[in-house]
Design a protein around this nucleic acid. Structure first.
Length: 179
DNA sequence: ACCGCGATGCCCT
DNA sequence: GGGCATCGCGGTA
């Protein structure tokens, strides 16, 4: 699902304006087995409840005292998996969205959208037919201390200047070309 | 370039 | 009460 989402357009309609950006960086969180996931060990709390519901809804949580993070719930009810939106290539008039906290700031997303269906008019994903870019995979960001899970290649990106952190040199297209 | 750290509040034990 | 799926700033190179 994370791979599928890359390159598609995330649209937010709010306050009479339409804000959008193209998905360039996402991470997969694989539920109870995944020690980096909020739903690790099947933890079902007020915060994680939305992830236990059906796919196609927004899971929005608050972190570090000031940031909201947007996820897409990706599996059937009872399978608490999600894809975290980490960076967008911003559309016209949209500010920098390189990092999960910046994505939600730029698209005016907060707890009011937690549990919302990913459908018009508030928040939805479009495929505008843009050509698909090559996908690169890396470890996830900010998941130290999760044992083998911190090394799993569950961050999916396309080569873009809008990533929250640049592609490792070894993965960069044209690396070693001589210039 | 990299590193350290403060802000700031909710969640979970 | 500790920690956090972060960010931006200011310091040192």
């Amino acid at each position: 699902m994370a791979r599928e989402l890359l390159g598609k357009v995330l649209v937010r309609e709010v306050d009479g304006q339409t804000l959008w950006g193209r998905l360039v960086e996402v991470e997969a969180y694989l539920g109870p087995d995944d020690l980096a996931a909020h739903s690790k060990g099947g933890r079902r709390t007020a915060r994680t409840e939305v992830m236990f519901g059906p796919a196609g809804h927004a899971y929005v949580y608050f972190t570090y005292g000031m940031h909201w993070c947007l996820n897409f719930v990706t599996r059937e009810a009872g399978a608490p998996q999600a894809v975290l939106v980490r960076a967008l290539e911003p559309g016209p008039g949209v500010g920098r969205c390189s990092g999960p906290g910046l994505v939600t700031r730029a698209l005016k997303i907060d707890r009011a959208l937690n549990g919302a269906p990913l459908q018009p008019p508030d928040l939805y994903v479009l495929d505008d037919g843009a050509p698909k870019s090559r996908i690169f995979v890396t470890p996830r960001v900010g998941v130290q201390g999760t044992g083998r899970w911190e090394k799993r290649l569950l961050r999916y990106v396309v080569d873009s200047p809008y990533l929250s952190r640049p592609l490792p040199k070894l993965l960069r297209p044209q690396s070693g070309s001589g210039f």
